[in-house]
Computed example of a mutant assay.
Amino acid sequence: MSSNTFSLASKVKLPSGHTIPQLQLGLYMMSGREVLSSIPQALSAGYRGFDSAQMYHNECEAGQAIRDWLSSPSSNTTGLKREDVFYTSKLASCSTNYQVVRRSIKSSLEACGLGYIDLFLLHSPYGGREARLASWRAVEDAIEEGEVRSGGVSNFGSRHIDELMGSNPRIKPSVNQIEVHPFNTQEGIRETCKKHGIVVEAYGPLARAMRMNDPTILALAKKYECTPAQLMVRWSLQHGLIPLPKSVKKARLIDNVKVAHFEISAEDVAKMDGLDEHLVTDWDPTDAP
């Protein structure tokens, strides 16, 4: 893997056939105002993917920021179109009521105003088997009706993935978005996803800055002449993940993804893998019943 393999232009092909930017900006815990300022900065810096959710309460602002930037000739100097930007949202909670989920997807689509949602995920496996499967049927129908391009899940453990795949879905999930970083490597779930051809998106790839001063991280950042954040993003990419680093600061938003100038050796990747302590920085529904 050559050291300049990864940039904001890097893409991964999803099982749905669509491509997804391999580096994206996570919009978790961003206020509407922060989203309105961060997305234009990110688009101008070269970001092409944005990860929102119903639970983030910023879908309207995310869609507005993307639309405004695309329609501004002074910002969008290269004439990018809607299809050049990848937008993700997620269902707040699974329900056994199919109609409720269908309406919820339509309201997300309305909120962003982007014409379609590139990737729509079930945000967690909470609710039980019937709710998960009914909710997935609603995602399949949203895809077939053109509201959503690709579907997936988030925070699904191995059992939930096997359950969904075992239900013989009409459309297979393209993505499972879970917390992954060197301090929570999630090897079991990643292995299950690999078995089913599901792409893994890594949220919290910087471990929410909780381990930036870890001695191993600091030593390797010094060795590779990069920041601890760049090291952790590069680790994600070399594992074939799609990391969603989050920052509201323009300089950091640009800096975090400058990872083409170095490549972590196999030995040092293994050293970082060894830091796993199953650190959960927010929530972990992957073992929900």
Rank of each mutant, 00 (worst) to 15 (best):
R48G: 12
S38Q: 06
E59P: 00
R103P: 05
Q99S: 14
Q24L: 05
S31C: 14
L70K: 05
N97S: 09
S108T: 13
G79A: 10
F50N: 01
P73D: 10
K90H: 07
Y87G: 10
R67D: 10
T88L: 08
Q54L: 06
L70H: 03
N76C: 02
Q64S: 04
T77Y: 01
R33V: 15
K81D: 11
L91C: 11
S107A: 12
D84Y: 10
D84C: 12
Q41F: 02
V101R: 01
G26L: 05
W69P: 12
R33C: 01
H57E: 14
V101I: 15
T77I: 13
S104K: 03
I39L: 09
A42C: 02
S37W: 03
G49R: 06
M29N: 11
G26D: 06
S44Q: 13
P40Y: 09
S72H: 04
V101Y: 05
L36D: 11
S71I: 00
A53F: 09
Q64Y: 06
S95N: 12
L70W: 01
N97M: 04
A45F: 10
K90F: 09
I39N: 02
R103T: 11
P40E: 13
W69H: 06
R48C: 13
G46E: 07
T88N: 08
K106S: 14
Q64V: 01
S72E: 13
N76Y: 00
H57L: 14
V100G: 05
D51M: 06
E83K: 12
S44M: 05
Y47F: 15
V85M: 12
A92M: 13
A53D: 08
L91N: 03
A53Q: 06
V101W: 00
Y87N: 02
A65R: 00
V101P: 04
K106G: 08
V35E: 04
E61L: 07
Q64I: 02
C94Y: 00
N76F: 03
S107G: 00
E83L: 06
F86D: 11
V85G: 04
I105G: 02
S44Y: 03
S38W: 01
K81P: 04
A53W: 06
T78E: 12
E59N: 08
L36V: 08
G46M: 09
M30A: 14
E83P: 02
L80F: 10
N58S: 15
E61S: 10
S108V: 14
G63D: 05
L23E: 09
E83D: 13
C60P: 01
A92N: 11
Q54I: 08
Y56F: 14
K81S: 13
Q54E: 15
S71A: 14
V101M: 09
L25K: 00
Q54R: 13
A45W: 04
S71F: 01
E59W: 08
C94A: 15
N58R: 03
S74T: 15
K106F: 00
L25N: 05
Y28M: 08
C60V: 15
A92T: 08
L36M: 15
G49F: 08
D84I: 15
L109W: 02
R67Y: 01
A42L: 06
S75W: 07
L25T: 00
K81N: 11
V100R: 09
